[in-house]
Nucleic acid binder design. Structure first.
Lengths: 343, 343
DNA sequence: TTGTATGCGTTATCAC
DNA sequence: GTGATAACGCATACAA
């Protein structure tokens, strides 16, 4: 359990300490012979370089700061794929991940940069007018945003293309000859948080509906959980009238309670009414009946964010990443959209 | 955006660099006058100490390493309260949290300690025979386990008291004069992972059942999701026979699909059959009908783990924490257990 | 109560 | 191709 240093390695290998450093970094040509000696010594002592010393001397920490929302009321499940993908990408480039929760607000950002705790930051769950964005823009380290604020302040943003998601859903319902749509909106907490993607979705939805001359109603707010789903579905059915109705559920964790509520009222999705959910494929495949969905793949977003981040840290190859990088969703037809009328 | 050092602060305050350091650490008496000067300078420059330099000179990083399971197939939702509570506790004592995923196995542990990336480690989701435990025990930093392995190797462990949870459930069913029980077991993946808590629960369940002379069947494996719940419930109802039947669901995220499956078959929980779920109160309050539950509070576990961890880092006050610290669950009566027969 | 001086374990710039 | 050596920014033992 003794802690060895590069000096110990140097002594054991019979070389100078700087040679050990160069063997590890590869920043200068080393004869194969001494290379092997050094590597053997490293192995023998199970030497590992001290991260603090490295950061101090080398001016890079090899740490990525990750700011995640963990306060109660956030879609918990949705966050984990983000985190996981970021952790994996960081590891793939030999970086650590330092966790900071959104509870800390911009103080966390300042600490991360001020104390040189990391080389770059991923800021998740950015709101339309997020007080942290101007702060982020003023830091000494690059910051990549997940979410698109009204004013990105020159920062790179990555997000799902919610506008395109809305267009996909509306086109599908138009193509299958629906007469009207109902949008089951977001929970009050989400709306109040002024998340940009909500607006992007709603605006694009309205625009697409106009394009296709499809009338629609919005039911809002719709909370999570069974009780709220029941109530919302009752309101939908009251609005129903005749004609072919398409239901769109943009709030990702929600589809199952709605499907259940319909079923409990004897309304069969895919026969009496259509349903399209904005949800990850993995979630859609778990529903009963299988819900036609527009994919919402967190992993793609994280991956792109990390690519941008590492490009910023090391702008070597190729063109710069897009300033606003929107990941395109895909519509997968399953069982809940009625087929077009024949003839 | 220039980065200031303690030297800059010293110059601005007209004192020596070491005085700045002592003002920040409080490790030596400072006259109120110079203290104010220094504090003003710090403020003026928005100075923050360099974490790497601090770690190097001070031999402590003020970082807690957190190893979390994020691979697919883990109960995702369950993890977030753990993480959140750990993040909060760390912050409360001015520590950062460095994230490592279980994917890395013991390599992650070795890196954390070997590179002096952190002062202590929390290792989550420890299995009965976890290859990481002996490695953890050999590290140069203290490690606190969440979960109890067969051989803790001298490490501190914190977990929920699953044995007590089983006893609570069985006593409740015995007290309300049930004639038999069915245990809806764990998914195959959990069983195969040889998690110690599964065994602790099952053993204690069997023992308590014997004590109360209550016969029981076990249905296993039971996967997550609606399909598996339906199938399991069909098997339960086939076993049913007459007499008062109590169903126990130990797998935390699962109660709702089971309740739904019962309801769909015209069996009313709380009237025709009893159900007790091992699940957090927050989850139990979301079910329909409200399920009587034995609480499974992740936050308590994390909090205790962090108390132990900081005691290890700074063994100042009071007695040492228990080597195996089991958090006691609580049974909350809601709507799904039939009342005792009268007379 | 305060200042001076050393060392922490690297990286990187000189020399050779 | 390799070896000395000077930073890096802070904490702390030693002086005063």
């Amino acid at each position: 359990m003794p802690k060895f240093t590069s000096k110990d390695v140097a002594r054991l290998a019979g070389v100078s300490q700087s040679t050990v450093s160069y063997v590890m970094s590869g920043k200068r040509p080393i004869s194969e012979q001494t290379r092997q000696k050094v590597l053997a010594a490293i192995e023998g002592l199970t030497y590992e370089p001290n991260a603090g010393a490295r950061a101090l001397a080398g001016k890079r920490t090899s740490v990525v700061g990750l700011v995640i929302p963990l306060h109660a009321g956030v879609d918990a499940v949705g966050q984990l794929p983000f985190i996981h993908t970021i952790a994996i990408s960081a590891r793939a480039r030999d970086h650590e991940v330092l966790l900071v929760t959104s509870d800390e607000g911009s103080a966390g950002l300042r600490r991360l940069a001020g104390r040189s705790l990391c080389d770059a930051i991923v800021l998740m769950d950015v709101e339309a007018r997020d007080e942290r964005v101007p702060v982020a823009a003023s830091l000494s380290v690059p910051v990549v945003l997940i979410g698109v604020p009204d004013d990105p302040a020159g920062l790179y943003c990555v997000d799902l293309d919610f506008a395109e998601a809305a267009r996909l859903a509306v086109s599908e319902l138009a193509a299958t000859q629906h007469d009207r749509m109902v949008l089951l909106g977001y929970p009050a907490e989400i709306i109040s948080r002024d998340l940009n993607y909500v607006r992007r979705f709603l605006d694009a939805f309205a625009a697409a509906a106009a394009d296709h001359q499809l009338p629609f109603d919005v039911i809002e707010p719709v909370e999570l959980g069974r009780a709220a789903a029941n109530e919302a579905v009752d309101r939908v059915l009251r609005l129903c009238g005749d004609g072919r109705l398409g239901l769109v559920i943009p709030n990702s964790p929600a589809p199952q309670p709605v499907l259940h509520a319909l079923e409990a009222r004897g309304v069969i999705a895919g026969r009496d009414v259509s349903v399209i959910a904005l949800t990850p494929d993995a979630a859609a495949e778990e529903t009963e009946p299988l819900v036609t969905n527009v994919s919402l793949e967190a992993r793609d977003v994280s991956r792109r964010a990390m690519e941008t981040l590492f490009w910023l840290l090391d702008p070597a190859p190729g063109p710069p990443p897009p300033a606003i990088d929107l990941v395109t969703p895909r519509l997968t037809r399953r069982a809940t959209v009625m087929a077009a009328r024949r003839g």
